[in-house]
Every structure is written in C-alpha cells, then in structure tokens.
Design a protein around this nucleic acid. Sequence first.
DNA 1: AGCCAGGGTCTAA
DNA 2: TTAGACCATGGC
Length: 209
Amino acid sequence: MLSACELYERLYTFYGQPRWWSDDPFTVMFQAVLVQNTSWGSVEKTCAAIGEKLTPQTIADLSPEELESLIRPCGFYKSKARTIQTLVAWFQKYDFERRHVRKVSSSDLRKELLSIRGIGAETADVILVYAFYRPSFIVDAYTRRFLLRFGYQYSDDTVIKQFFEKSLPKDAQVYGWYHWLMLEHCIAVCKKHPKCDCCCFQKECRQNL
DNA sequence: AGCCAGGGTCTAA
DNA sequence: TTAGACCATGGC
C-alpha cells in the first residue's frame, strides 16, 4: 500500500501543476452548494448563464424565488437556494472579504459553516480549502473512488480524512491540489472505463502512476 | 427508460 | 448509531 504522500507524488508527477477551484471565494461557495448530488456540467451551465452577476451582493439582492429559478437546472433548487442565501448572509458579516473571514480560526470557521443548513462536511471542507485556504482534507465521491481503485477499503469518511491528514503537511494548498489531482485522475480513467469502480487493479487504471 | 450525478437532513428502529 | 427516504433536474 502506498502512503498518502507517495500517492500525491505520483499524481503530481504525472498530471503536473493542478488548477485551483476558483480564485474568487464566493464562486467557490456558490458552486460547492450547487454541485451537491449534481453533475458538474449543470453547474457550469448555470454559472455561465449568470455570468458577471455572480457576485455576493447581486445574489443577496435576489428574492428567494428569483434565486430558485436561476439555479433550477441544478436540482434540489429550493433547499439549495435557501442554503446559498444563508451563506451569503453569513459572508456579509465579514463584508464579503476573505481576509476578514480568515481572522477566524480553522476549527471555529468549520463549525460556523457546518451550522448552516445544507452544508455538511464535504461542502464545508471544499469552502475551507478553496475559498479560505484552511487545511481540512476534502472527502467526496472522487476521494472515495480514488482510494478504492488503489485497494484501500475504508468505511467511514472521517477515517479517510485522517488517512490523508496524518501524513501530509497541514497545508491548504497541498490539500486543494491533492483533491484536484484525484479528480483529474478519476475523470481521465473514467473516459476509458465508464464502470471503473470495479477495475482498480487493472493495468490500464494504474499505469503511469 | 432508467439510472446517476463531487450531498444533506430527518426519521425510524 | 445507522440505514433509508426524500429532495429535483438534466444528461446519457
């Protein structure tokens, strides 16, 4: 079994410099909610339609119904609209400024996010890492799928989170890059093997890694 | 046609 | 504490 660090080295060597989700914290928050149990393509389309109006103030000024109709294509639009409005109100307490949010400690920030209805562990960690540069390893469908392919079998997300956090430097940039690399890898493999969860030991899925 | 997508919440046992 | 129902739409 490879360690989390060794896996990272191989991913980084193979795929090179990963992208960041978005430089804009509000874009990260907005998209992280929209993508819940939804395909990324729907989120992209929705955000493209909103265009430059995707700012916290613009979204804050929308009525619930207006926001619902904007995000409808992403599914679960009523609950997501409510979550986004709550998030915006929360962000407004910090004047929509990342540097103000960053005055809060990581653990308190995580608690604040988790207290918002519609934000669970995964969404909170995405926001912590990509929007506010706080190290809290993201465990999502890609993380689980990635580990499965390499023969790791964990039942519980908190155990997976620990697997990464215990052996990596506590660094948000590393966590964000790592998550992005796993995503890239899953997408690259899935193009060749649509049902790839069950092919983790096949050579095609592991070559060059 | 039917199943799934980068989840989260609430409830029943 | 945990499995299962529910939320909803679009893409393939």
